[in-house]
């Protein structure tokens, strides 16, 4: 089974993010970049499917050449191949544009792919748009935010968490699946994997080669302003007998917070 896993290079969730107001971008200097954590669940699932059913896993990223680092990590974890679709633009926050690029890539280079795996969203942009948009563009079934996946030759069953229950979705292959935390526990790269990854070539495919119309490559999202969320203020703890603290709480909610 040919499996594609789409991964994105994002700032480490533990980094302190700074914003440049001149360019409306996140300041990259001093930031540590990682593979988006949800994408790791997607890759792990792909590797497990390969190990149990055979097949080939290809990790793909859209971005600049610095994304090669996370593709190398995917190879070290066990992906058979990797490819970078080279996009000269900075983060556009335009999910549809990315989905169009990926759709063009799949049609042109991997029409035989049976499973297209994503993380449910990339941390950083957090729009959770690309998997669904891609499924629509390719006219494929999709299941998102998946916590369990069972595959057969030409169909599968995916479980997703919904409010208070788990939803079971049956679908034919090929399909688009996006992974949620809980789907699996991603493995560490082994030393053997790292040494093998070192010897593999990662092809770089210029975005122009995919054959997407110029107007579709122009971002349609304009970022007008990026802001760091205000720091959360410390909570307040009241003390004393229950009647007294209840009175204080009501007073606070009424007079200061003005919610009752």
């Amino acid at each position: 089974m040919d499996i594609l896993v789409f991964v994105k290079r994002v700032p480490d969730t533990e980094s302190r993010i700074r914003v440049s107001h001149e360019t409306n971008t996140v300041v990259e200097e001093g930031l540590n970049f990682i593979i988006s954590p949800y994408d790791e669940y997607a890759l792990e699932e792909a590797l497990r499917i390969k190990e149990s059913k055979g097949g080939k896993v290809t990790a793909v990223s859209v971005g600049k050449e610095d994304a090669l680092t996370i593709l190398r990590k995917c190879l070290a974890m066990g992906a058979d191949e990797a490819a970078l679709i080279k996009d000269p633009l900075e983060e556009t926050y335009d999910g549809l544009r990315t989905a169009r690029i990926i759709a063009g890539f799949v049609k042109k280079k991997f029409p035989q792919a049976r499973l297209l795996l994503f993380g449910k969203q990339s941390v950083g942009a957090d729009n959770a748009q690309v998997p669904s948009m891609l499924a629509e563009l390719l006219d494929l079934p999709q299941v998102n935010v998946v916590v369990r996946l069972e595959l057969e030759e030409d169909r599968g069953v995916a479980y997703r968490e919904i409010e208070g229950a788990q939803e079971k979705v049956a679908f034919p292959l090929p399909a688009v699946i996006s992974a949620q935390k809980g789907l699996n526990e991603p493995r560490y790269e082994t030393l053997k994997g790292i040494m093998a990854a070192k010897r593999k070539e990662i092809p770089i495919i210029p975005i122009e080669e995919i054959g997407i119309a110029a107007e579709d490559l122009a971002p349609r999202v304009a970022v007008t302003r990026l802001e760091i969320p205000p720091a959360r203020r410390a909570g307040r703890v009241t003390s004393g007998p229950a009647e007294e603290t209840a009175r204080q709480l009501v007073e606070f909610l009424h007079r200061e917070a003005k919610v009752i």
């Binding site: 090669l68 190398r72 990590k73 030393l191 790292i194 070192k198």
Partner: peptide
């Protein structure tokens, strides 16, 4: 090198 960083980060993560 890229491999040295990959290895270092893997061990850091594991640790």
């Amino acid at each position: 090198t890229e491999e040295q960083i990959l290895l270092r980060d893997m061990v850091r993560d594991f640790a």
